[in-house]
Write a protein that binds this DNA or RNA. Structure first.
Length: 490
RNA sequence: GCCGCCUUAGCUCAGUUGGUUAGAGCGCUAGAUUGUGGAUCUAGAGGUCCCCUGUUCAAGCCAGGGAGGCGGUACCA
């Protein structure tokens, strides 16, 4: 039995067309922001991609990897950022700094597929490399907002959430999580905080301390903080959120203080968030579009400063009538250490990435799906001895810019009609011996015909009525076909 | 990875306490209709009952193991 590897999928005509349209819109926005296109290969040396090293026991963990003939480990890219870091490191001297590029393509992850999550999917990234300025980060947020709106997502149906890793780091320092001994617990704290939009504060407190048992009976170990430290962390996060985006009246909010006054790391992150907020607000992006939210975590190790997450806020019902939240459809942030891995030289960089496939699924359920495009005009083969004449008509239509094909199978007329129907053809061209004798062709409008047919119950009448068809002179072929097509192009 | 549910025709699903030749609807193919996609009627094709092992005179049905799917959770560069 032929079958698809799990986590992969075939994509049909209408979805491809839709995706191409999306990519074009995204590209338009990225270009408008001044990014240049760059394409890098889908395969890199494994060590160029980062921390998934082939000298471990299982080089295939997370990434698809294999060895070439001289035993070097190669991997399929799992994102577009790591290859960018390689490219920048390799071409550093030639590139304009800051270097701004966009890239799109398939990325691959060797992990368990889930709902809306596949092992191959499309991302679309924009990155600025070599810019320390926080303005580069603010720009990414605005780019993200503009892109989602260009794709037809209404203001209010999405939000770009912004945080700063330094704020979280400072918060954890305050709670006593310092030094290499605590690095494991710091990761657990970050994971726990990331759940704030999903679980209650009570549950997050459990995750910070003793651990939590979920409804399926699975137990998630906690970060084993003591109560005080856990509550401190949580309250810093919620207070910081209050400071930037106050719920309720804005006047009262102005009274709020930032949560920690004395921690240098926290203050640095806080200051950057303040600047980002000031810049995007000055450019006219309000909290309904770009919002500071200190519970955003994103990837665990990699980010060093601001992080962004593009989230869809609307809910949608699936086939079973359950409400589904799509959540994150993109994200990014500042990764100042990525290029340094190759050159040793610290190169500041910031970027944003859209999960195209996921976003497309979300748009589809939002009802934004474009109508199926019409199939080609089909020229029927009534008389196998006259194939050349049919082929010529087909070419005439093609030369006029009309999508057309001659029926290439071997079946009779009835089956050819069914074929045209299944292809979604708007009309067929018929020339039997009668028409040919008079230098005429018959055009049948399949869309009108289907409507007319609905009213006819009797087969004899159906046969004789021959609805929605017209016999014309051969010389009018192109103009009459255009006329019919024009009726169906809305 | 962990927990739960599921797997019978192309699709959606029936299938009795374990019993002889496994069904329906839709779809598909053909005919009724020398040259007309719909509707109607008729006929036909289509099955490793997810796989393996076991229990039994007998397994789609029971037991164990595995695979795949769905949902949750974990992970997510």
């Amino acid at each position: 039995m032929p079958r698809l590897p799990k986590g992969f999928r075939d994509i049909g005509a209408s979805e491809i067309r839709e995706q191409q349209a999306m990519l074009a819109k995204i590209r338009g926005v990225y270009e408008r922001y001044g990014f240049e296109p760059l394409e890098t290969p889908a395969i890199e040396y494994t060590d160029a991609l980062g921390k998934f090293l082939p000298d471990q026991d299982r080089p295939n963990e997370g990434v698809f990897s294999f060895q070439d003939e001289d035993e070097q480990w190669l991997s399929l890219r799992y994102d577009l950022t790591a290859p960018l870091a390689r490219f920048v490191a390799e071409n550093f001297d030639k590139l304009p700094k800051p270097f701004r590029r966009y890239a799109t393509g398939s990325v691959f992850r060797n992990e368990k597929p889930g709902p809306g999550r596949f092992r191959q999917f499309t991302q679309f990234d924009a990155d600025t490399v070599g810019a320390e300025s926080i303005a580069a980060d603010a720009e990414m947020c605005m780019l993200a907002a503009d892109t989602l709106e260009a794709l037809g997502i209404a203001r209010g149906d999405y939000v770009i959430k912004v945080n700063n890793r330094k704020v979280l780091d400072g918060t954890m320092e305050e709670a006593g999580l310092v030094g290499p001994d605590s690095s494991k617990r710091r990761l657990m704290v970050l994971r726990a905080l990331d759940k704030l939009d999903k679980f209650s504060e009570q549950d997050v407190l459990l995750l910070l301390t003793v651990g939590r048992k979920d409804t399926s009976g699975d137990f998630t170990p906690g970060a084993s903080l003591n109560e005080d430290a856990a509550e401190r962390i949580l309250s810093v996060v919620t207070q910081t959120r209050q400071y930037f985006v106050p719920s309720g009246d804005t006047d009262g909010a102005k009274q709020l203080n930032k949560a920690i006054e004395e921690n240098a790391t926290y203050n640095a992150g806080f200051e950057e968030l303040t600047q980002i907020q000031a810049m995007v607000r000055a450019a006219g992006y309000d909290a309904d579009r770009i919002r500071i939210d200190p519970s955003v975590v994103r990837g665990l190790e990699y980010y060093t400063g601001p992080v962004f997450e593009a989230e869809l806020t609307f809910e949608v019902k699936n086939e079973e009538g359950q409400t589904v939240r799509f959540g994150s459809v993109g994200g990014g942030g500042r990764y100042d250490d990525l290029v340094a891995r190759f050159t040793g030289q610290k190169v500041p960089a910031t970027g944003f990435s859209i999960g195209v496939s996921r976003l497309q699924a979300a748009l589809a359920s939002l009802g934004k799906k474009s109508a199926d495009t019409l199939g080609p005009v089909v020229v029927l083969v009534m008389d196998k001895g006259e194939v050349a004449a049919y082929q010529k008509m087909t070419q005439t239509l093609r030369s006029a810019g009309i999508r057309a094909e001659m029926y290439l199978g071997s079946a009779g007329m009835k089956a050819q009609m069914k074929y045209a129907d299944k292809r979604g053809s708007p009309l067929v061209v018929i020339q039997g011996s009668d028409e040919r004798a008079n230098k005429q062709v018959t055009l049948k409008d399949l869309i009108e015909g289907a409507k007319a047919a609905a009213a006819i119950k009797d087969n004899k009448e159906w046969k004789e009525a021959r609805p929605a068809q017209v016999t014309i002179s051969e010389t009018d072929l192109v103009s009459k076909v255009r006329e019919i097509l024009a009726r169906h192009e809305a």
